[in-house]
Design a protein around this nucleic acid. Structure first.
Lengths: 357, 357
DNA sequence: ATGAAAGCGCTAACAA
DNA sequence: TTGTTAGCGCTTTCAT
């Protein structure tokens, strides 16, 4: 018999029979555990190819407790584009590592907790968490999962035994403020994330420090905390600029969505961007290219962050307890028209279509 | 012993022992196969809860050949937002159905074919495909997978034994043209997808028929086929409007990205939208709210499409060979400023922030 | 280095 | 209805 009658699937026994070796040898050859390139090896590989054999995943997992599967918990894909962009890169990295991606999208912390539990009981080799709110999902984990490699991307690193990969936010802020200063800004406003988010505090500190270092005057009223939505950006800009004697000449935003809102508000108020106000976003969402003027934005190193996260999980060795990783990548600043004054850059509307396909 | 020493996991045997029943009974109670609510049932459930038991996925799959996992093959998330929006809805539907989502993102047809093979050999209960190009991925499937439920979302239904779920494109086009006619348009241009895409032909046919029915004059030069990018929309609009004596007063676009490009081009050319030209997109991407003016767009029934797709897979009965499903949902037309003339609608820029959070 | 055989944890067939 | 038991397909130990 060439195949199991029930499932219609070729099993390792069929390969073993055809290659005239034991099932153990087939397993060893195909898993790369036995890498000698002799006659046996060739026979096994030929037999496997001929029968179109592929290992039964469930059986393999059951026996070896390895699933070749990485769980990913992310918040709902919405205005905030960062998770989406990261998802692309993560998927590519996981494919490269020859692993599978088990995805759970949970809008709020409650559902994310459910997702987490669900993935863990199902069985995965590692877990990647992109948490939008800085809630500590991992706190709720049972003891039995403490030796599973877990990587948190972004947010605040809360527990020392969780690997953290993300963007060097201080560096991001430094680049932002430096760039604006270079472009001639003196009075910078800062629309941050929610104050509860731990990163917000860090960013604010850097913003404040850097502003002072450059002899800029950060007006306390100009630093505001709130949600990462376009509406919030719009409202904040209105309150910053309307009926005010002293107004900022640049607005730094914690997300591209906020920046879009500011952009729209400026147009309504008849303010020229970048002549009167410079605007800078965060995330380098595709919409930055679309905006008019195109939006300068901080671009996290999505690919590097994804690859590093996957590497941590794939190279994990349970026996060798190493310290939790902490990898902060310096982001890129993507210069566009919203911070380029006509004198410095091109005032002509460049065609934005040459973006990524 | 309360748990297996090797894996640290509680097994069904532990639960059986604590509840004083056989493992088979535990399995039956917990799987819902035995739904009587008597003492045995209670004892089993209590024991399972007490020991924090959850079934071993690999063992269950191996034995029953059920993975509770749905594979999803999608193209890379890029300018084209539709797959992203659909992903959100699909994830929600899959969670609702108490299944897992195994995601494979493949930029081109070649990689999607790899993904497909990879998912199938791994073992899934059903497969959902969102193919951007209308390539027939499923043709390449081995015979042994022919009884696996496969759902294709969107694109052209190519093989009769594949379930198809998507948008009623003819209806979409009808709504579009009707709306434009109502708004007073007489000369409509149509920027379609690539001509190779099968849907393009359908849409064009509807566009042509409907235009004629409404006594509009579809100029052959005004129907163009091409990629769904902003750049293409820009270039197309330039060629439509620049140095022409007769120009369209409305542009129907096969994607929001194209529409964005047209919008930008119109601004460059000094054309007022919607006064001089009305523009309508497809997909209702978040960017439609951002655009200035906000972009009218056709919105597919993302939630319904997702739920239907998942239902087909979950309700699949291999024994009962039924006909392949074909479910076309009528889309919504989201009216925004790009097709509302000041006389008809509001010329005042409404705040777009009230969108989905 | 290779083969024989145990057994991962569960479900389903069969027996009571 | 419940229990007993075989066995899903693989990996891995142990014996050769």
């Amino acid at each position: 018999m060439a195949r199991n009658l029930a499932t219609g699937q070729v099993s390792i026994a069929n390969v073993a029979a055809l290659a005239n070796v034991s099932t153990a040898t087939v397993s060893r050859v195909l898993s790369g555990q036995r890498d000698k390139d002799d006659d046996i090896s060739r026979r096994v590989k030929e037999a496997a190819a001929k029968l179109n054999y592929s290992v039964n995943f469930a059986a393999s997992s059951l026996r070896s407790d390895v699933t070749r599967t990485i769980g990913l918990v992310i918040p709902e894909i919405s205005e905030e584009q960062t998770p989406t962009l990261l998802l692309n890169s993560l998927s590519a990295a996981i494919r490269e590592a020859n692993r599978y991606l088990l995805l759970a999208i949970g809008a709020d912390a409650e559902r994310q907790k459910e997702d987490l539990h669900s993935l863990l009981t199902r069985g995965i080799d590692g877990l990647i968490i992109i948490s939008s709110n800085d809630e500590n999902l991992v706190e709720s984990l049972d003891e039995e999962y403490k030796n599973l490699p877990i990587v948190q991307i972004g947010g605040k690193s809360l527990t020392p035994h969780i690997n953290w990969v993300g963007t060097d936010q201080s560096e991001a802020m430094r680049m932002t403020v430096d760039h604006l200063a270079e472009q001639g800004s003196h009075a910078i406003a800062y629309l941050s994330r929610e104050i509860e988010s731990y990163t917000a505090a860090d960013l604010f500190t850097t913003f404040y420090t850097q502003s002072k270092a450059l002899d800029l005057t950060p007006d306390p009223d100009w630093v505001q905390f709130g949600p990462c939505t376009m509406e919030r950006g719009y409202q904040a800009a209105i309150s910053l600029f309307q009926d005010r004697r002293v107004v900022p000449d640049a607005v730094v935003c914690a997300s591209d969505s906020i920046a879009m809102g500011v952009l729209i508000a400026c147009k309504h108020l008849g303010l020229d961007v970048p002549e009167d106000v410079k605007i800078i976003g965060y995330g380098d969402a595709p919409a930055c290219e679309i905006a008019q003027p195109a939006l300068t934005s901080i671009r996290p190193m999505y690919e590097e962050i994804a690859e590093e996260s996957v590497s941590i999980i794939c190279d994990w060795d349970t026996n060798k307890p190493r310290m939790a990783a902490y990898q902060a990548f310096k982001p890129e600043l993507i210069y566009r028209e919203s911070t380029w004054s006509p004198r410095t850059g091109s005032s002509d509307m460049t065609l934005p279509g040459t973006a990524d396909n």
